[in-house]
Computed example of a mutant assay.
Amino acid sequence: MIREATANDSGVLANFYKLLAPASKNINVLPERIEQIKKDENNFLFVYEQDGEILGTIFLTLCLDPAYEFRPYGVVEYVFVTEEARGRGIGKALLNYVDEVCVSRHCTRICLMSSVQRTDAHRFFENGGYNGTISKAFKKYIRVRPVTW
């Protein structure tokens, strides 16, 4: 079953994200942030749960687009399925779910970000209809400074 993540999922998601970005020392998934995302009409943090266990996740942000009337576009990140659960259609179900959300919100496109080293994931994304040769993504990481909330 695919559902929106809740604050109770923060520990599992933190573990997933640490596997996605093992060199990052700044990963800290706050339960309050998950609740904030859940309340935001343009951000979606989904998990795939089976028999009480979370086996995968995906994050979708809908962005305002100045070029196509009032149609947004989607940006997908943090696509992860546990190693034991890969090959069972969970990743495909998560991508299809995001597709449905984007179609229902009249998006013009979906952009997907993936680490350059995840070549198996790239093949999976291409099989799901994503084209990795149309655009080139650039990221600039900003040094994380302590914040007092």
Rank of each mutant, 00 (worst) to 15 (best):
V12E: 01
D51C: 09
I90P: 06
I27R: 01
I142Y: 10
E69D: 13
V79K: 00
D51R: 13
N15L: 13
T6G: 14
R123S: 11
K139R: 10
W149N: 12
K39W: 08
S24G: 09
I34M: 03
S10I: 14
V47I: 05
V29M: 04
V12T: 05
A7F: 01
L45M: 05
V101E: 07
K136L: 10
L19V: 15
V147A: 05
D9A: 11
G91L: 00
R71L: 12
E77M: 06
I37V: 02
R3M: 07
K139W: 10
D65W: 11
Y130M: 15
E4S: 12
I34E: 02
D120W: 04
F138A: 05
E77A: 10
A93E: 09
F16E: 00
L45R: 02
V116L: 06
N127H: 06
R86W: 07
G129V: 07
R105F: 03
A85G: 15
F80Y: 04
C107W: 03
F70T: 05
M113I: 14
I27S: 03
V79Y: 00
V98E: 08
V116G: 07
Y141S: 00
M1Y: 14
H122L: 07
Q117M: 15
H106D: 15
L45C: 04
R118L: 15
L64P: 05
Y130L: 11
R88Y: 12
D9R: 06
I58C: 02
V29F: 03
C111P: 03
K18Q: 08
R33F: 12
I27G: 04
F44N: 00
G87Y: 10
K39T: 11
D99A: 09
R3S: 12
P146G: 14
Y17T: 13
T82P: 03
E53K: 08
P22W: 00
N15C: 08
V101Y: 07
F70C: 13
K38R: 04
K25V: 10
D9P: 03
Y130G: 06
A21C: 05
T57S: 00
N8P: 11
A67V: 13
F138I: 04
I2Y: 07
I37N: 02
A14I: 01
I110P: 01
N28Q: 13
N15I: 05
I134W: 12
G128Q: 05
V12Q: 03
D9E: 10
I90A: 09
K18M: 07
A85S: 12
R88L: 06
A7S: 07
E53F: 02
C63N: 09
E83S: 09
A14P: 00
